Structures are given as C-alpha cells and as structure tokens.
Simulated assay, not measured.
Amino acid sequence: MKILEWSTRNLAVRDRFPYWYDTMSQAHLHAWLATDDPARFHASARVFDLGTVQLSMMSHHTLRVNRPAKLIRRSDPEVFQLHLLLGGAGGLRQAGREVTVRAGQFLTIDSSRPYQGWRGPDGDPAEALLVQFPRDALGLRSDVVGRLAAAPFPVRPGITGVLAGHLKHLADNAESLTPHSARAVATVTLDLIAAAYADQLGAGDSLTPEARRQALLSLIHDFVRQRLGDPDLTPETIAAAHQISVRHLYKLFQEQGLTVAAWIRRSRLEQCHRDLADPRQRSLPIQSIAARWGFTDAATFSRAFRAAYGMSPRDHRNLAAAGHAPN
C-alpha cells in the first residue's frame, strides 16, 4: 500500500508554508491556502492510498482555504471529503451554509462546489482525519449526499461512533495492510460512511444490502467489545439489542467463518493476552485479568489461552516480563 508522509519540522522558516501549500495541493484538492503567521507555521501529514479511498492524518497550525469556481473549472476530481476533527476548531462556507466545527464532529466538503474555510486556532495544532472518495462510491445519490456539505454532525454512540473508531484504528494500523487487505478495508470504510450518511439523512432504505449488512455487523462488533467483561453476554442478548433474530445473527457471523461464541472467545483472549504482557498490570492475579474479560472459570480460561497461543497464561506473562514475549 502506498503511504506518503510530509512534515515541515526540519525546514527553514521561510520554506515551511510554501512546502505545505505545494504538497497539499497535489495530495488533495487544489485550493488557495493562506496562514496568518508563516513564521509560526508547522504541519505534518500521512496519506494512505487504499485504492478507492484516500485516508489522511493531518496536523497543522491555523490555515485558511479558498476553492473558488475558477479552480473547480480548471480541475475537479468529483470527490467528497469527510473530515473528522480530532483537535482544534474550524469553519466552512459552502452550499449556502456557514458553519463552525469542533473536535468530535464530522464535516463533509464537496469538491464540485466553491468553498471557503479555516482551521486552527492559534496555539496547539489542529488535528484531523480526512477521507477522500469519489462522489459515486457510496451507492447513494450524489445529490442526496450533497445535502450534508457544510453540515457537521457529531460522533455519538451508534454508527457515527463506530465510523470514528474505525477511522482512528485504520490510521494507527494502515502500515500493516497488504494491497489486497487495503482494498477490502476501503470497501468496509465506504459502507460505514454510507451508513453514517444515511443515518444523518434518515435515508436508511437507500443503502445497498452490503452497506446495510456491514453497518449492522460493525455495530454488533462494537456492542460486543464494550461488553466483553460480562460473563452473561450471549447471542440472545446481542440479537435482542440489535432487533434481529438469533438466526440472522448466526448467519452474519457464518459469513465471516466464525461462530458468535468463537468470536467472543477470541476477542476476550486477545484482551487477556494484551493485559498479561502489560508491565503496569503485572501485580494483578492472572485470574483477575481473566475475570475482567468474562472468564469466570480459571481452568477453562487456561485451556482456551493455551489452545490459542501455545502456552499457559503464566508462561506468556513471564516471557513478556523477560522482554521477549511472542506476538
């Protein structure tokens, strides 16, 4: 997978903003950029090319951006950009709307419409995740999606929370993706964005069957992860929480090649494996860690751990303490 990385850290003061201007105009939409204080300007970006989807992690001091109609006539890739602001604040004027966006909110920009915006403020850099994708990639009508241009919406429990978590995890782990897995992740990302947009627009019926299935499965995964420590977590409680039948739940997991119980057990074991290698938790009894993640019987936990990792929980902890635990 192609990964591009830029930083102004080692550049002379006079070169920082011009360098950023040139690189961002090539990596993203061509727009006019300005900063109020070039002498204090610093920025960095990592751009992950997933094929259909481009994901960027960006950090920069205050910027003002202008993409007028004449730039659009000169070059328009016909894409949407979905921004997730992680720190700082910003503003956008597009499609007859003028809005302010803050950390913890999503914001959509349409490349085919003129816009002006800013992001800052002065002081700590603004941080954001940016997903760029073709206008027709979601399986939703472009004019319907366009209703969300300059219409921020918050990250909250449900599909927007799942989408935010997915993007953050992807930004942290994209380097490990193979080209094949990058394409698969791009498809999942588009399905989640489509579901989040449909949720905001009250247009759930317009989702493709695959996008609807992926959104439901992601919501179920998130629900289970939040409740791994509950020993009474069952397929029945999971199905009821998502208003589906247990049979439908089993079918969703069969398509992944796992049973519901196997996925829950694997997820619990992964958490135990991580915590047992954590030096900050070395004083905790092994069974306390196991119980935290839903294993109430020590013998059952030990057998499951050995089957998954080829060693006992105690041996794994000791190897981690010695500095050479296997992954």
Rank of each mutant, 00 (worst) to 15 (best):
R225Y: 10
Q256R: 15
P231A: 11
A262Q: 15
T234A: 13
E236V: 15
L252R: 05
H248Y: 12
D232I: 04
E236C: 03
A240V: 09
A240T: 14
E210W: 01
L233I: 15
L207D: 04
D230Y: 10
A215D: 03
Q243E: 13
K251E: 15
D230A: 11
T234H: 03
T234Q: 07
S218D: 10
G257N: 09
F223V: 05
Q243G: 06
L217Y: 05
W263P: 00
Y197R: 02
R265N: 13
H221W: 06
Q243C: 12
R268H: 00
V224G: 06
Q200A: 04
L228H: 05
Q226P: 09
T259C: 12
A261I: 09
R247S: 15
A241G: 07
G204W: 12
D232R: 08
Q200K: 00
A215S: 13
T237E: 10
D199Q: 01
F223I: 01
Q243V: 13
I244C: 04
G204A: 13
E236F: 09
R266I: 00
T208Y: 02
K251P: 01
R266Q: 14
A211K: 03
L258H: 07
H221K: 14
R265V: 13
A203Q: 05
P231L: 13
S206I: 01
R212E: 11
R266F: 02
H221S: 08
E255T: 09
R212P: 01
T237P: 05
L216E: 11
K251S: 15
A203W: 00
R265A: 14
L258M: 10
S245V: 04
V260R: 01
A262F: 08
T208A: 07
D205Y: 00
L217P: 03
L207K: 02
L207F: 03
S206L: 12
L228P: 02
L252E: 15
E255I: 12
Q243P: 07
A262W: 08
